[in-house]
Design a protein around this nucleic acid. Structure first.
Lengths: 213, 213
DNA sequence: CGTGGAGTGTTCAATATTGAACACTGCATG
DNA sequence: CATGCAGTGTTCAATATTGAACACTCCACG
């Protein structure tokens, strides 16, 4: 779990679906096609959850569900604070060659208050600008570096520019209430055919089992 | 060494500077500011070299340099083949959320023949186009996904577009012989003040020591 | 000359990651 | 009602990664 985005992702997903077991998380993340970007294979989910529990960011409940034993996780207050911290770091920190934390953060936006999202994105915008300026003003020892290195720097600048525009645009959309965030006038609702009802059932049962101990 | 870009980077850097020891590699990579992107801390260099040696991609020579023992590495024929394989995979494979293999590949361009670079970049261009088309034609269940997910897809498209243009442009530059690659009419030369002479000395000494065993 | 700080070169224990494999429950099929 | 196959939920040994710490040399400075 060196890659802090695994922490962020697991903590966030638990918060979205708690109480929840490892397999449900795996299924959910697969359905987000997260495996395409984050590197979450079954093993790292379970060990990541264990680590987060050991650190006091999650509570582990060993339930007996019917005949079956199942390990179900819920977030702790400390875990929710940790999530906020990680989320801010992921969204504010610019590293164009490791975009995963940022993308992970974006995908977990709904867990953060609207005002704080705006604050974090504005901060990212500033950081992007700073990095671009830094790059432009760098003592471009032209001639001292091979041409392909210069070309790579161009690519980097292009990516920074693209992201900058996207962030600015996103801030506009949020401002106009178009991002479906909590507190927007027209907050987004999941469609009615409801593919997640199964998990909602489990969740309710888990909740009762936790209470009844 | 799950991240295959560490393999690629180490193998390539050894090929650039062989015979070379772990510390020299570390210094060189630091000077490329590689630690900013790839995650190479001292430990992973040494264990990565050990792994590559165990697999027969590198030879390890335990030399006595003056009074000091030093572990010096050279590439094997198998290692050079492996490098080509890894390089092609890194440059051809499009994963916009893990740009490191591509960047690592770009930084090691000088180790690859010009024609093969062109081939790989053309292939990447095709793969980028394919992914973009796929994304556009995806059954955009508009309304079935929260708006922030759609916004993330927009970001992804923008990045793909930016990279596409850069690759097309780079192909043009290579074609006009502006990239300083081996075989270009005006191949690029390091400036004369020669910051690498120290390593060149060590290299020569290591070569003699290896021969004299 | 000793004392210490910077540079060189490497190891190592603690931790994380990988993905194959396990164990179990339905349940459909011949 | 065996057989096997898809789904559920988790563990584990092998491997990789981390970064602090080690051991050494060189050299400057009081």
């Amino acid at each position: 779990m060196a890659a802090t985005e695994t922490r962020l992702l697991l903590l966030g997903t638990v918060m979205l679906f708690e109480p929840v077991n490892g397999y449900q998380l795996r299924r959910e993340l697969l359905s987000w096609q997260v495996e395409d970007w984050a590197h979450v294979n079954p093993g790292s989910i379970y060990s990541g959850l264990a680590t987060l529990a050991r650190q006091g960011n999650l509570d582990r409940h060993d339930l007996v569900d019917g005949t079956r034993e199942v390990a179900v996780y819920t977030s702790t207050p400390q875990g929710r604070e940790e999530f906020e911290r990680l989320w801010f770091a992921a969204v504010e920190t610019v590293d164009l060659l490791s975009p995963l934390p940022f993308h992970t953060g974006l995908s977990l936006m709904p867990l953060i208050e609207r005002d704080r999202i705006v604050k974090a994105l504005r901060s990212r915008l500033a950081n992007l600008d700073a990095k671009v300026r830094e790059q432009l003003e760098a003592p471009r020892d032209l001639g001292s570096m091979p041409p392909h290195v210069g070309a790579m720097a161009d690519l980097w600048m292009g990516l920074a520019q693209t992201e900058r525009e996207w962030v600015a645009n996103a801030l506009g959309r949020i401002d106009r209430g178009e991002m479906g965030l909590a507190g927007d006038s027209t907050s987004w609702e999941a469609p009615a055919d409801d593919p997640g009802w199964q998990m909602a059932n489990d969740r309710e049962r888990y909740r009762r089992l936790i209470r009844g101990r």
